[in-house]
Amino acid sequence: MRKILFLISILVFISCKKEKIENQFFSKVINKRDFPIKNFSKIELISYYNRIYWDTKFKGEFPTHKILVENYKLTFDSTMIQERIVLNKAQEKELLNLMISDSCSIDQITSACYNPRHMILFRDDKDRIIGYNEFCLECASSRNSSNLEDFQKYCYYDMSNLFKKFGIKLFVESDDKKANEKEVAFIEKLETLSK
């Protein structure tokens, strides 16, 4: 019985020590690294069906040429956003920690598809967009505001998991038949409405 209590107390001590070290590491990383957007008041995660199919203002243009934010606002139809989550302070720290770390130990293979469905928005105290990061999980590619150009070193897999952890549910992957069917039905409905 004493051995079991001793082992439990050691495990609790190690767990607490590990959490303390992780918290110290995080605060050191945030303080040491100079995250370029200092005046944000909130961070939002948004998801939408493949923007390339419904973004009519720039339909037909190659997606990398599209200006996504102009005059502190999205240039695409924000009513098309399916999910919107405003992060709390702990979630903000977790997201920033991932963004500033060079977490990807594997080479990410990129492809040419660019089917963006997710975006991180940094807003100031007037609710204006002052930075963004839109990405496509399928091709491991992204578009950033100019003030976030050096913060694209994370693994897309890690960012996908973080979005899921924070409550984003819209993910369309090539082998997910149900999600693909939902997206196709959404796009077909839009095309029918626009006729």
Rank of each mutant, 00 (worst) to 15 (best):
L170C: 00
D127H: 10
R2Q: 14
S9P: 08
M99N: 02
E19A: 13
R143V: 15
K164W: 01
L68K: 05
A90R: 06
N97V: 02
N161W: 00
S146P: 10
L11F: 11
E70H: 08
K164Y: 04
D107G: 11
G167L: 06
E44H: 04
F13Y: 07
R117W: 07
F163T: 01
Q91N: 03
H118R: 05
A179N: 06
C16A: 10
S47H: 04
F35N: 04
S194Y: 01
L121K: 02
S111C: 12
G131N: 04
F166M: 02
K57I: 11
L5H: 06
Y49C: 05
Q24D: 14
S27H: 11
C16D: 02
L45R: 00
E44W: 02
R143N: 13
R123H: 07
E92A: 00
Y48K: 04
N144A: 05
D158I: 01
F62Q: 05
I187D: 02
I129H: 04
Y48V: 10
R123M: 14
R123F: 09
I120L: 00
C136K: 07
F151D: 06
N23P: 04
I30R: 08
L87C: 05
L190N: 07
K57Q: 08
D127M: 12
I129F: 03
N180K: 12
L5G: 08
E94D: 07
N133Q: 12
S15I: 10
R2L: 15
N115T: 12
S41L: 12
L95E: 00
V86H: 00
R143Q: 15
N71V: 10
N115P: 03
E138N: 14
S111T: 15
V29R: 07
S194A: 13
M119S: 06
I100R: 00
I129V: 08
R2Y: 14
F163W: 02
L87H: 03
E22V: 09
L74N: 03
D55N: 15
K17S: 14
G60N: 02
E44Q: 11
N144L: 07
A90L: 06
S41H: 15
L193N: 04
D77A: 06
I85R: 03
F58V: 09
K3Q: 11
K28R: 14
N180S: 15
K153E: 13
D175Q: 10
I120P: 00
Q152T: 14
N71H: 14
F58Q: 03
K42V: 08
S9I: 12
K73D: 11
I168L: 02
Q91S: 03
L68N: 09
F186W: 08
K195T: 06
I129T: 06
R33S: 15
N115E: 14
N97A: 03
M159H: 01
Y132R: 06
S194E: 10
T192K: 13
Y53I: 03
Y154W: 13
R128P: 06
V86C: 05
T79H: 11
K18Y: 12
F26Q: 13
D175T: 14
D77K: 05
D127C: 10
A185W: 09
Q24N: 12
D127L: 12
F151T: 06
D107L: 14
R51S: 15
W54G: 04
I85E: 05
S9M: 15
A90G: 04
E149P: 03
